[in-house]
Amino acid sequence: MNKSSHKSPNKTQVNSRTLGRTGLSVSEVGLGCWQLGGDFGPVSAATAEAVIEQAVKEGINFFDTADVYGNGISEQYLGKILNKLAPEAVIATKYGRAAGTYPDGYSLTDLRDSVRRAQDRLQRDCIDLLQLHCVPEQVLAARHIFDWLREVQQEGLINAFGASVETHKEAEICLEHSDLQSLQIIFNLLRQRPIEALFDRALAQQVGIIVRLPLASGMLSGKFSKDTAFAATDHRNYNKDGEAFSVGETFSGIAFNQGLEIVDILKQSVPEGMTMAQFAMRWILDHDAVTTIIPGASSAFQVTQNASVSQLPVIDKTTHQRLFAYYESAIEQHIRCPL
């Protein structure tokens, strides 16, 4: 297996930011690899490889995955492609949602075994960043799981650890640990509360913010309509009301038709020359607390479109203020999950 040297790729399109206190320079637009596991509908090996290869071409060097994305398939794709094209790329994977682990099977042995399996799939001797994967609040509060993370870190199995969380309370629990390097959260135009609830503390503690679902499962692409249909295997179909896991992970917790109405209003703020999707992602990157966004992609073209956001101009302060006011008055009340 290869050890990552973390040299910056010779690319200029995507700007970089430092991840927490790790010293790792990561592209501010990364690649979210949930999609490559098939949870948004079937993805062929050829498509998955083309997406990863295009990300490398665009200068993206941060890849977010998990052991449960396609039961390890997403990690395997990354290991196969990045080992050849970009062994210096930073890979963040996760622990905590696999069968037998979630909701009450957590232990040091289980964690260590999960990391070793991930190393095999990723073809890495050391995991760059291991994130707790939406672990139940009571498990986080018990604190043992953080001691186990430190132990596997001391063993050289992981370089750094962070947490992917569902709620602000979970984020606060994680921030009690001074060696936490990152928090992965849902943050987008439909979920703006972290601006006031989280960002100042994260900046003060130098904890990197990784933003998942920047387009709210595609809702903020502006391309959906009431006639849009999703594959039976797509979580936007089987989890639209939270039947399988937190509804917050699908359309950011807002009912589909309600989301369409909100997006129609948000489109009025999109500057000339930007698409709705570009505007939504540029808005996120305007926040200093954010280290990187991890949009998914189902084609090489989408990767290029996402990467281009890094070079778009900052959105003016007045627009930011107007969007937050609209969030407080007309969006937040429709979110169907704990914040």
Rank of each mutant, 00 (worst) to 15 (best):
N2S: 11
N2P: 09
S4A: 15
P9Y: 06
P9D: 05
P9A: 12
V14I: 13
V14G: 00
N15P: 02
T18V: 15
G20W: 03
T22C: 05
S25C: 03
V26T: 07
V26E: 02
V26Q: 04
V29N: 02
L31W: 06
L36Y: 08
P42C: 04
A48R: 09
E49L: 01
V51Y: 02
V51K: 02
Q54C: 10
N61K: 01
D64N: 14
D64P: 03
D64T: 10
N71A: 11
Y77V: 10
Y77W: 13
L78C: 02
I81T: 13
A89S: 15
A89Q: 10
I91A: 01
I91Q: 01
A92P: 09
T93H: 11
Y95K: 11
A99K: 11
G100R: 07
L108G: 14
D110R: 15
R112M: 11
R112H: 10
D113K: 13
D113P: 00
V115K: 01
A118S: 15
D120P: 00
D120T: 13
Q123G: 03
C126Q: 15
I127D: 06
D128H: 09
D128M: 04
L129G: 07
L132W: 00
C134V: 12
E137F: 10
E137Y: 11
R143N: 13
H144Y: 06
I145L: 07
R150M: 05
V152E: 04
Q154P: 02
G156T: 12
I158R: 05
F161M: 08
F161K: 09
F161Y: 15
S164L: 02
S164W: 00
V165R: 04
T167K: 06
E170H: 01
I173N: 10
C174P: 10
E176K: 14
Q181S: 15
I185Q: 09
I186A: 07
F187C: 07
L189G: 08
L198N: 02
L198F: 05
F199P: 08
R201W: 01
R201M: 07
A204Y: 11
A204P: 00
V207H: 04
L213A: 14
G218D: 03
G218T: 09
M219E: 06
L220Q: 01
G222N: 08
K223A: 14
K223V: 02
S225H: 09
T228H: 12
T228A: 12
A231R: 12
A231F: 07
A232P: 00
A232N: 10
T233M: 09
T233L: 11
D234H: 10
D234F: 05
D234A: 08
R236E: 07
Y238L: 07
N239E: 02
N239V: 08
D241I: 04
G242D: 02
E243K: 14
F245M: 10
A255N: 09
F256W: 06
G259Y: 12
L260C: 01
E261V: 13
K267P: 03
P271L: 12
A277R: 07
Q278G: 15
R282G: 08
I284L: 04
L285N: 05
H287A: 04
T291R: 04
I293T: 03
I294D: 00
I294S: 07
G296M: 07
A297G: 09
V303M: 08
V303S: 11
V309N: 07
V309G: 05
S310C: 08
K317E: 15
A325P: 00
A330N: 15
R336Y: 00
C337I: 13
C337G: 00
C337M: 08
L339T: 03
